[in-house]
Write a protein that binds this DNA or RNA. Structure first.
Length: 305
DNA sequence: TGCCCCCTGCAG
DNA sequence: CTGCAGGGGGCA
C-alpha cells in the first residue's frame, strides 16, 4: 500500500492505540513474513511508534534481564552491559495491512466492507496479542511485506536506513537538495527518478504522478532538462501531495486500510492517479495513462507541458 | 540503469 | 487466459 502518507496514517492510528500495551504473545502464521525471533518480544511494552520512509518502527522496552547465554563473555561482565533493547519493524510493501482490534473497531464509525471482514483472515500472516486481550494483525496478500525484530545495534550495523534520502516532510528537505539528488539521474524521466528512495524517501507510484501534476511537469521530462523553476515546483508538489495524502487518510486502491481497518480517501482528491480517460479536474482534457520505468503513470497532457 | 523476481488475486 | 497492482532487492 503504503507510501509515506499511508504508513504515516497507520502510525498515527497505532500510536493512539498501542503505546503502553504489553505484548503477551506473537503468533507467526507465515514464517516467511517474519524475520528474527518472535520470542524476544514477549513481555515488552510499546514505548513509541515511528516511521522512516515507508518503514514503521515499534520501539519496545528493554528486557530487564541481561542475556545469560554466555555469562562469561566480556559484555555480560560489564557493569553497564548494553541494554537488550528491541525494535519491531514493518514494511508493508504492496498489500500489507496493520489492523488493531480491541473488539470495538466499529464503534463510532461507519463500517466499510473491509472493516466487516473478520480477522484473522486468509491473508493474516502474524498476530500480536497484548496483555489486555487486544490484538494487532499483520495481513499481507502478496507476502512481499515483512515484520522484523532487531536490536538498535543491529539496526545501526546493518545500516538499514543508510541509503534513504531525506524525509520530504521534514525541515531539511529543500528544493536545492531535491535538485542535487535528482541530478544523479540526469537521463531518467523525472517521475521515475523521484521513486528512487535515495533521492527522497517515501514517495511511491501514486504520489509520484500527483506531484508531477501539481508541479505542471510532464512525467517523461528528463531530469537533466529541468530548470530551477521546475525543481522548485516539483519540491512543492511533492510536499503538497504527501500532506494531502495524510489529510485524506491515505490512498486506497484495493488494500490499504488504516490501523482501525478504515479506507483512505486520497484518491477522491487525486488529480491524475487512476483517472485514465477521465477529464482533468483543472482543464477538462483527457487524462492519459502510460508506462514509465515499467509502472503505470498518469498525467494531463495539457496541464503538464 | 533496466529487467526479473518475489506473490496473490482481480479485471478485462 | 493475459496483464496489471501503493515496493524494492538483485542482477547483468
Amino acid at each position: 500500500m503504503p507510501e509515506l502518507p499511508e504508513v504515516e496514517t497507520i502510525r498515527l492510528g497505532l500510536s493512539k492505540k498501542i503505546i503502553g500495551l504489553k505484548i503477551k504473545g506473537v503468533e507467526v502464521i507465515q514464517p516467511k513474513s517474519f524475520l528474527g525471533d518472535s520470542k524476544r518480544l514477549q513481555g515488552r511494552k510499546v514505548l513509541k511508534v515511528w516511521r522512516r520512509a515507508k518503514i514503521l518502527g515499534v520501539e519496545l522496552t528493554p528486557s530487564l534481564r541481561a542475556k545469560r547465554s554466555n555469562p562469561n563473555s566480556e559484555i555480560a561482565s560489564l557493569p553497564s552491559a548494553p541494554r537488550n533493547d528491541v525494535v519491531l519493524l514493518f514494511h508493508l510493501k504492496m498489500t500489507g495491512q496493520l489492523i488493531y482490534d480491541n473488539g470495538k473497531r466499529f464503534i463510532g464509525g461507519h463500517p466499510t466492507p473491509d472493516m466487516l471482514k473478520a480477522l484473522p483472515n486468509s491473508h493474516t500472516r502474524v498476530i500480536f496479542t497484548f496483555s489486555n486481550g487486544s490484538k494487532l494483525y499483520f495481513n499481507d496478500q502478496r507476502r512481499f511485506g515483512w515484520v522484523k525484530v532487531m536490536q538498535s545495534e543491529e539496526l545501526r550495523v546493518q545500516n538499514l536506513f543508510g541509503r534513504l534520502g531525506p524525509e520530504p516532510l521534514e525541515k531539511g528537505f529543500t528544493w536545492q537538495i531535491l535538485k542535487n539528488n535528482l541530478l544523479r539521474h540526469k537521463n531518467m524521466p523525472v517521475k521515475v527518478a523521484i521513486l528512487d528512495q535515495a533521492v527522497v524517501s517515501g514517495i511511491g507510484n501514486i504520489y509520484a504522478s500527483e506531484a508531477c501534476f501539481d508541479a505542471g511537469i510532464d512525467p517523461r521530462t528528463k531530469v537533466g532538462q529541468m530548470i530551477d523553476e521546475q525543481f522548485k515546483a516539483l519540491h512543492s508538489g511533492i510536499v503538497k501531495s504527501l500532506k494531502a495524502g495524510i489529510k485524506y487518510g491515505g490512498a486506497t486502491r484495493a488494500h490499504f486500510v488504516d490501523a482501525e481497518g478504515r479506507k483512505g480517501y486520497f484518491l477522491d482528491y487525486a488529480y491524475v492517479y487512476g483517472k485514465d480517460k477521465k477529464p482533468c479536474k483543472v482543464c477538462g482534457s483527457e487524462i492519459k495513462k502510460i508506462q514509465l520505468g515499467g509502472r503505470g503513470t498518469f498525467f494531463c497532457p495539457a496541464c503538464q507541458g
